[in-house]
Amino acid sequence: MEFGYVGLMCAERDYRPVGSRAPRFIKASRPLHLSWQVVIFLLGLAVVAGGVVLLPLPGPGWLVIFAGIGLWATEFPWAQRVLHWTKRKVLEWTHWVKERREERRRRKQAQRVR
């Protein structure tokens, strides 16, 4: 089994269509929707910038960065695709780590039996 398939399979289970998730009354007015997108972009930028600052410091830097991208993903299709790709890669990596851990455990048990 290839790891890429497992990540793709798990990540697509809760995949939503790309596009704006703004309330209907905001999408109805072009100027209001544009203002909404600017606000979401600036909030996401602030969160991502905070995550970048936290990277060299002890703290959840990457988690904060992904939260900012998640905020962007509520409004921008490119961020939704980035988040989907990231989730798939994290699931692939998690599966790979579990496989290695199992393999190491089996080797230890085999050495004890000898």
Rank of each mutant, 00 (worst) to 15 (best):
S35G: 10
Y5Q: 15
P17D: 12
A110C: 08
P77R: 13
P77V: 10
G61C: 07
L43H: 02
G70K: 03
P58E: 05
W78P: 00
R107S: 13
G50L: 08
V39G: 00
R100A: 09
G70E: 08
E12G: 07
F3T: 01
T94K: 15
T74Y: 10
R81W: 08
F76C: 02
R81M: 08
H84P: 01
F66I: 12
L34H: 03
A46F: 15
F66S: 07
V97K: 15
A110D: 05
W72R: 01
I40E: 00
F25Q: 13
G7M: 06
Q109W: 07
F25V: 11
G19I: 05
D14R: 13
L8M: 12
R114L: 15
R107I: 08
P56E: 13
G7P: 01
L34Y: 03
A73M: 09
I69C: 01
R106D: 13
R107E: 15
L43W: 01
A73V: 05
A110E: 12
F3K: 02
L8P: 00
R114F: 06
R88S: 11
V18S: 08
W36T: 03
V90G: 08
V39P: 00
G51L: 03
L45W: 08
S20M: 04
H33F: 01
P17Q: 09
D14T: 04
L91Y: 13
L8W: 10
S20A: 05
F66Y: 14
H33E: 06
V48L: 07
S20H: 05
